[in-house]
Amino acid sequence: GHYRIRINGREFEIRGISEEEIRHLEEALRNGADEKILKEIVDRLRG
């Protein structure tokens, strides 16, 4: 998958993330885990 997200007015492209991972992120966001989720995304993109 290849997705664009906007955070604090800046747009980011996220590549190589699966539909299942996105559902997991959405679930966590609904549970209020904003900073933790951003850290997970950044860590994943770093490799």
Rank of each mutant, 00 (worst) to 15 (best):
I5F: 05
G47Y: 05
R23D: 08
H2Y: 14
G47R: 03
N31C: 01
E27L: 11
H2P: 09
L25F: 07
R15I: 15
L38N: 01
K39M: 15
G47K: 06
R15Q: 13
I22A: 07
R30A: 13
E20F: 08
K39E: 14
N31V: 11
R44Y: 13
G16M: 05
V42T: 04
R4N: 07
I14A: 01
A33S: 05
E19W: 08
I17E: 02
E13D: 07
G32Q: 07
R15G: 05
E20I: 08
L29M: 14
R15S: 11
Y3Q: 01
E20G: 10
G32F: 08
N8Q: 06
G1C: 14
R15A: 11
E19A: 13
D34I: 10
E13Q: 04
R10A: 12
H2A: 14
I22D: 01
N8D: 07
E26I: 09
L45Y: 10
Y3I: 10
I37T: 14
I17K: 03
R44C: 13
R23S: 10
E35A: 11
R44G: 12
K36F: 11
H2I: 15
R4S: 10
E26G: 04
I5Y: 03
L29K: 05
L25N: 00
H24E: 12
N31L: 09
Y3N: 02
E26S: 05
G16E: 06
R4M: 13
N31F: 09
I7K: 00
G9I: 01
E20S: 11
R30K: 06
D34E: 09
D34W: 14
H24D: 13
R30E: 07
G1S: 09
E40M: 09
G1D: 13
G9V: 01
I37Y: 12
G47C: 06
E21G: 08
G47E: 14
E11K: 01
R6E: 15
L45V: 07
R23G: 13
A28Y: 11
G1L: 06
G47S: 09
R10H: 15
G16L: 09
I14V: 07
E27I: 11
R4L: 15
L25R: 00
D43A: 09
E20A: 11
E13S: 04
E40C: 03
A33M: 10
R23E: 11
I17L: 08
E40S: 10
E27D: 11
R6Q: 15
N8S: 04
E27F: 09
E11Q: 04
R30G: 08
H2C: 14
A28C: 12
G16S: 07
R23W: 06
E26P: 00
L38D: 00
Y3M: 04
R6M: 15
R23N: 11
H2L: 09
I5D: 07
E11M: 09
K39C: 12
D43N: 08
L45W: 09
